[in-house]
Nucleic acid binder design. Structure first.
Lengths: 257, 257
DNA sequence: TAGTGGTCTAGACCACGTG
DNA sequence: ACGTGGTCTAGACCACTAA
C-alpha cells in the first residue's frame, strides 16, 4: 500500500489463476478486481495493448474479455480516450399496478428529471396506431418521443401516440403528458402494459448510453379513458440496469381488485 | 424454383450493398435474408469459412457478424455441426396482477409443460433467505429449483425457498408447488414481484438454450399467506424472447398522499 | 502528435459432432 | 476422417480524443 502510483493493477505482469479459455480467465480476473474494489468506478483500465502485454495474450483476446464486460455494463469504452469502470446507474423503482406519470412519479421522490425531445408532431398513422387507437380513415396521429433522464443519466425512451382528437397539438405538451391530458379532461384511468426483455439495438443503446446488446425492457402500454376509449399507445424502451418494476399479485380467479 | 440445391445463398460470391464496417454490412445482409424468408428457420448457413470466401472478408469478420445475430436470437450455433436460423420460441403471456401457478396456468391453456429438477433439498439458509422468510436462528430452509419447459423448449429457471415449517419436505412437491401448499392449507394469496432485465450469464443461458448475453428477465417474488406471514421467496430467470408479462394499471393516485 | 479504441486480415490449432 | 464452430496470434491501418 505504500505505492502512490498504484492503480489496482500494479505495473508488472499479471498472472491469471484459473483454467479454461484465456479471455474467460481475464474476464473473471477483471470482474474480481472490480468486485473487490481493486478498481473503482470511474477508474481507467490499462490500455488494451498494455493489458495484452502484461497478461501475455494477444490484443484480440483482451478485447473479447473487455467486450463482454462492457456489454454486461461493468465497463465503459470511450473511443480515443480509454476504458473505464462503469459508475452503476441508480436503480429506479416503478410500480406495475398504479398508473402514474413519469414526471409526477419522479417529482414525488424528489429526483431531478429532464426530458429531451426526440420527436413531436402530427403524422399519418401506422397500421398499428390506426388499429389500437381506433382511428377513422384519414385521421392523423399525434406523436411525442422523448428521452427520459434522471441526474443526467438516460433512463428510457418513450414514444407515445395519441389521436389528434385527444391531443390536437403535441407541441402543447411541456413536461408531463398526463398533466396536459388532465387539463383537457382526458386523463387515462386504466392501462394495459406488455413487458418483455430484449437486447438493445445500436441506435437505442446509443441514446441510453449503454453498449449495443445490453439488456433492455420493451414496454407497450395502451391506456384508457373513463369512457372506455383508448387514450394513448406508448412504446418505451428502458435500460435494464436502471429499472426495477414492482408488481403486486393477488390470488385471482375473479378479476380485478 | 427449378434448382433443388438452392439454399437461399446460391453458390456464387455475395456482394454487400451498404457502407460502414464490413461486419455490420454482413449482419444486415443476413438479417434481411432471414426477414425476407430467403433463409428459413431451421436452415443451415454456409460454414463460416464458406461465407468468408464468398463475401470476401476474413473469417473473424464473419464471426463478428454471426455472433451478434446469435446473441439477438436470430441464429443458433452448434459446435461441430453448423450455424442455423433459429426457430422463434412461441411467446407465452403471464399476468402480473393475478397470482397463478406456472403449472396450473399452462394447463389452463392446454400447453404441454414439463419441469426438470435442478435441486430439491433442505439447506442452511442464506442471509437473504433468513431475512426475507423471517427464519429464526438454526432454522433450515427448503429449496426447490427447476427448469420449466413447454413443448420441450426451456422457458425459465425457478428457484424457490421456503421455511421448513411451511414446506417440511421439498421432495413432496410433484408438479405444482402451489398445489402442494394448498393441500397443507398454506397457499399464498398475495405476492410482491420485482422485475428487471439483464444479460444472461453463461450457465443460465446454457440451461435456457440461448446465447450467453441474451436478454433475460430476473424476477424476485415474495409471497404471503392469509395470516400475513411470508410463504415463499422465489428468484426466477426467464427467457426474454419467450415471455410477455402483462400488467393492468389503475389510476392509483398516491399523488397528494 | 501521441495514444486510445475500432476494424480487419491470414493463418493456426483445438474440441466437437457426424458419417 | 472430415468438417464444423471455438480460441488465439501478430500485425496492420483507421478514427477519435486529448495535450
Amino acid at each position: 500500500m505504500g505505492d502512490m502510483t498504484e492503480d489496482g493493477f500494479g505495473s508488472g505482469p499479471i498472472t491469471l489463476p484459473s483454467g479454461g479459455p484465456l479471455y474467460l480467465q481475464l474476464k473473471r480476473w477483471l470482474e474480481d478486481a472490480i468486485a473487490n474494489g481493486g478498481i473503482k468506478p470511474g477508474d481507467a483500465l490499462p490500455s488494451e495493448r498494455d493489458l495484452a502485454l502484461r497478461v501475455d495474450v494477444s490484443r484480440v483476446t483482451v478485447r473479447k474479455a473487455v467486450q463482454q464486460l462492457v456489454q454486461d455494463g461493468l465497463l465503459v469504452q470511450r473511443h480515443g480516450s480509454g476504458t473505464f469502470v462503469a459508475t452503476p446507474a441508480p436503480r429506479v423503482e416503478q410500480s406495475l399496478s398504479q398508473l402514474t406519470s413519469f414526471t409526477e412519479d419522479m417529482a414525488r421522490r424528489g429526483m431531478a428529471v429532464r426530458s429531451q425531445w426526440l420527436d413531436r408532431g402530427v403524422y399519418p398513422p401506422s397500421p398499428q396506431e390506426t388499429m389500437v387507437l381506433g382511428l377513422t380513415a384519414g385521421e392523423q396521429v399525434s406523436r411525442i418521443a422523448r428521452l427520459r433522464l434522471s441526474q443526467e443519466t438516460p433512463l428510457a425512451i418513450e414514444r407515445a401516440s395519441l389521436s389528434t382528437q385527444i391531443l390536437p397539438d403535441p407541441a402543447a405538451v411541456r413536461d408531463s403528458l398526463y398533466a396536459c391530458l388532465e387539463q383537457a379532461g382526458s386523463r387515462p384511468i386504466r392501462a394495459i402494459q406488455r413487458i418483455r426483455a430484449a437486447n438493445l439495438e445500436a441506435d437505442e443503446a446509443a441514446l441510453l448510453g449503454v453498449a449495443p446488446g445490453a439488456a433492455g425492457l420493451y414496454i407497450e402500454r395502451v391506456s384508457y379513458l373513463a369512457n372506455g376509449r383508448v387514450a394513448e399507445l406508448t412504446r418505451s424502451t428502458y435500460r435494464g440496469d436502471a429499472y426495477d418494476f414492482v408488481a403486486e399479485l393477488r390470488l385471482g380467479d375473479g378479476r380485478t381488485t
